[in-house]
Computed example of a mutant assay.
Amino acid sequence: RPSSAHWAKSNLSGEYFRYKGILFPVGVYSPESIGIAENAEVQDDDIFIITYPKSGTNWMIEIISLILKDGDPSWIQSVPIWQRSPWCEVIMGAFSLPSLSSPRLMSSHLPIQLFTKAYFNSKAKVIYLGRNPRDVVVSLYHYSKIARQLKDPGTPDQFLQNFLKGEVQFGSWFDHIKGWIRMQGKENFLFITYEELQQDLHSSLQRICQFLGRPLGEEALESVVAHSAFNAMKANAMSNFTLLPTSLLDHRHGAFLRKGVCGDWKNHFTVAQSEAFDRVYREQMRGLPTFPWDETPEDASPDPDTNPDPNPGQASEAPHP
């Protein structure tokens, strides 16, 4: 079982290595561990949660942990989140664990070209959770300050440039989402966004339950909603990462579960950063369907003087914390 102690002992240097062109942090991943994930065997009832980093992975793990137990919170309150849905590509990853009960729930940040090949000829299910890349970059910047395996992010400007060029762990956000979105329409693939979970958790949960073939009654659904709420997760020691040693995650410099809101990027981006981001975004995402974060008119530019929701008339469309 990959314990946090395993990583605490390994050398988290903040250095990266490249695997088939993609950057990975030394100490948590290795070329061997990614190779094992690429070539692993898959079972037809496996469930994979796939995200680009900082897109709500742990929220989705919590949700599916609850769905698999029909809303009963005892599992999420007694087993750490990284044991409930272990990572595929880490050193001593999910595929090396003999004791995972069926259905296996596993997590991955791998881009599609590095993901477990056997999945594509199986009935195993992938849930891909996407998130507004502006919020991703802000979250990643804060996370880089407390995660010992990541490079110091430098100034916000430098970090934004690195992010837009894909010179960050797991490569380009744009390549990641464009790769996985090609799976849309396949019956063992579900694409859902962080913003949809925020806007209407209840309907989103029904979609996820239907996809997993696990319909829940109203009472069980309400329990999933209540126990996967941000404040419930933040208060749950099994889910808030406070169990990890400081050598891995330095909580003195910030919380792992920071805000859990949509649109926080507007409190961080300067107008120039926002324009630089939009230029690259438009170019990279040309021809793709629109995403929830493309549709809110307030997202057009950061307004330093106002709340993220300046027009109450559009409140129903704006993502709410």
Rank of each mutant, 00 (worst) to 15 (best):
F174P: 00
I208K: 04
G35I: 01
E187K: 07
P111N: 10
I50Y: 07
Y52Q: 01
S108L: 04
K145L: 09
N240I: 09
P308I: 13
I50K: 11
L12K: 07
Q161R: 02
Y119T: 00
N236R: 08
H6A: 11
W180T: 06
G130P: 05
S74C: 07
R282A: 14
S101I: 15
P111T: 05
W173G: 00
V26S: 05
G179E: 03
R18Q: 14
L97K: 11
N121V: 07
F24N: 00
P156Y: 00
G263D: 06
G217E: 05
D303A: 11
D200S: 14
L243N: 12
Y29L: 03
Q184I: 14
S274C: 10
A220H: 06
Q83Y: 15
P25G: 06
E187T: 12
C88K: 09
K9T: 14
T155C: 03
P297I: 11
V28L: 13
G217M: 01
E89K: 01
R252Y: 12
S172Q: 01
D278M: 10
L164C: 04
V225S: 09
R84F: 13
D264R: 10
V126N: 06
S139D: 05
P292E: 12
V138G: 02
E62S: 13
P304C: 04
L221K: 01
L197T: 09
V42M: 06
L249G: 00
W7Y: 12
A235P: 08
P245D: 08
S239R: 05
P25H: 05
D44P: 00
K117V: 04
M106R: 05
M92T: 15
G35W: 03
Y194S: 08
Q169K: 00
S223Q: 02
G263I: 08
Q43R: 14
Q83F: 15
L205Q: 03
R258H: 11
P31N: 05
T193Y: 07
Q284F: 09
K9F: 04
V225N: 10
G260V: 08
R84V: 13
D157E: 02
W82G: 12
I76C: 09
L212D: 07
G166Q: 03
G171A: 01
G27M: 08
V138Y: 02
Q314W: 14
R252C: 15
H320Q: 13
Q43H: 11
P31F: 09
G313N: 12
K69T: 15
M285G: 02
V137F: 04
N240P: 11
S228I: 06
E222I: 13
L23R: 04
H320E: 14
F48C: 05
P289Q: 14
V168T: 02
E298H: 14
R1P: 15
S30Q: 07
L114F: 03
S172K: 00
A276T: 09
N231F: 11
G93I: 07
W293A: 12
R207P: 10
T242S: 11
F256P: 05
N162E: 06
Q198T: 14
